[in-house]
Nucleic acid binder design. Sequence first.
DNA 1: CGCCTATTTGATCTGATTCAAACAATGTGG
DNA 2: CCACATTGTTTGAATCAGATCAAATAGGCG
Lengths: 247, 247
Amino acid sequence: MASLQSPPPFPLVLKLESITDLSPEERQALLGLPLRVQEFRADQDVVREGDRPIQCCLILEGFACRYKLTEKGKRQIFAFHTPGDIPDLQSLHLKTMDHSLGTLTPCKIAFIQHEHLRELFRQHPRLAEVFWRDTLIDAAIFREWMLGIGRRSARTRLAHLLCELFMRLKVIGLAGSNSIPLPLSQAEMGDALGLSTVHINRTLQELRGEDLVAWDGGILTILNWEGLMQAGEFDTTYLHLQDCAAA
Amino acid sequence: MASLQSPPPFPLVLKLESITDLSPEERQALLGLPLRVQEFRADQDVVREGDRPIQCCLILEGFACRYKLTEKGKRQIFAFHTPGDIPDLQSLHLKTMDHSLGTLTPCKIAFIQHEHLRELFRQHPRLAEVFWRDTLIDAAIFREWMLGIGRRSARTRLAHLLCELFMRLKVIGLAGSNSIPLPLSQAEMGDALGLSTVHINRTLQELRGEDLVAWDGGILTILNWEGLMQAGEFDTTYLHLQDCAAA
DNA sequence: CGCCTATTTGATCTGATTCAAACAATGTGG
DNA sequence: CCACATTGTTTGAATCAGATCAAATAGGCG
């Protein structure tokens, strides 16, 4: 009875409810946003450094990342993005993109006109705060990554990243009880952690050798969550999950 | 005739006008914010990781930084802050501090109740956008630092930092034509760039040896701006200075 | 002066990069 | 269904940028 199943959850609502509470009206307003949906293949740029977008991207399906290249062509990935994220929300207030957004896997992406977001914020001022909050969490994640890249060992950094991805995918309902899809190449992980592909490979083997995780066919399985958190010096505070109102 | 001089410019207005335009009413509203001013010595924490502030800090005088420590006690500095900055503006929307704010030099700091900022935003909704914009630029700087720490050489990173500090101090009127106060120890620069003190020392000598900069008595003099920008792969785009309206 | 902190220098070590090549998996077209 | 191309993973060896350790020098200042 396919016709009886409830509509698929709207990723944006799921994502925002992982960091705050939404009123029914707010939820309704988000559902009503006019979207233009577009499919992308893997490894395609969605927005490029230097662009001056008049719309924001909402990821509906797939993995994407934000990155920038060095003059020598080295890449640093700043963030991984998953369904429900609006990676270039900043373009609403910063006219020129200072970095690029690209897909990592095939993606379904919805475009929302700045115009419509501004109108949404006029109607629901608290939603503006929620989105502001979201960009602040974004920045908090940058800081945590900086701490890792600047001051932690390769092993700690990688373990930390895996912990983060597990947590983030969990709260948006994309994680199994102890596994997540991890459709990243080792080169991409290296670009995110400021390490070479070769070193990622060896470090990953280390974590697997200690039975902290398993990785097969794009699926990461957490074998020892406590151990992995410890190896990654992982503390969820910086993700600011739902601490808006409560303790 | 000291009594005839105009009042000292309010750093916050100066800072915000470096990234956007303000209407006379908005300027007036900012000037009217109730402040509680407090003096700090160097190397003191103003806000600490884990705190749940009910106010924001506005730096009036001095240098401060945001940082976090590794479990092994290593420090990563995320940002340097100068007069006009509100380094913990995020506490308005993220209840728990995920990092600390400390002084680097003696500082004069004004505290603004969250309450008063919220009221300000109610009266002047566009100011909320301006402050949001400011936190987005903050994040853009984090990304640029990440790119440096992750993918650039020590020499490039250091040159880049010096370029950034020069530009930022210039727009708030704290730079000479080719010099700025740089009251940082080499250890602090190291903590910001993810390098050891010793290596900062040698790298700094390199830049001085090439006559790109001079550094004496806490004053950094730019001897060759073009050369320094090139050495640092420096491009101001990420600072988003006043691109709000114009080109 | 003497104390404390910051800079500088030298020597040694190491985590991570680079280069190179093998190997595995996946997909493509004939 | 196989040959081939392509892309990602794995392994080994050599190298290097930057860390660490240790000690000397130089400022600032009560």
